[in-house]
């Protein structure tokens, strides 16, 4: 699980072009859409692309994403739960 979380952080930085951050800057339980990371509504949609591209997981309604994208922890839990 912790390996997954580190991979996720790297993918988030890559997908959302957060070049000013490193994996160490993102904490597992940090709210991704709080003020600190400065993510916005387009980033939320990019998470949907990230999950589909890298994990084959589909989210058809952006409003479902709200809880899933809360933090790296919730993202990792969603991936664990839904992988094959």
């Amino acid at each position: 699980m912790s390996e997954l979380k580190e991979t996720l952080k790297a993918q988030i930085i890559e997908q959302l072009n957060l070049e000013n951050l490193t994996v160490a800057d993102i904490k597992d339980d940090q709210p991704l859409f709080g003020d600190e990371l400065g993510l916005d509504s387009i980033d939320a949609l990019e998470f949907i692309v990230l999950l589909e591209q890298n994990y084959g997981l589909k989210i058809s309604n952006p409003s479902e994403g709200k809880d899933i994208f809360h933090s790296v922890n919730t993202l990792a839990a969603f991936i664990e739960k839904n992988k094959n």
Partner: peptide
């Protein structure tokens, strides 16, 4: 085989 909102914007 991908569509990206941030690229489209």
């Amino acid at each position: 085989n991908l569509i990206s909102p941030s690229d489209f914007v």
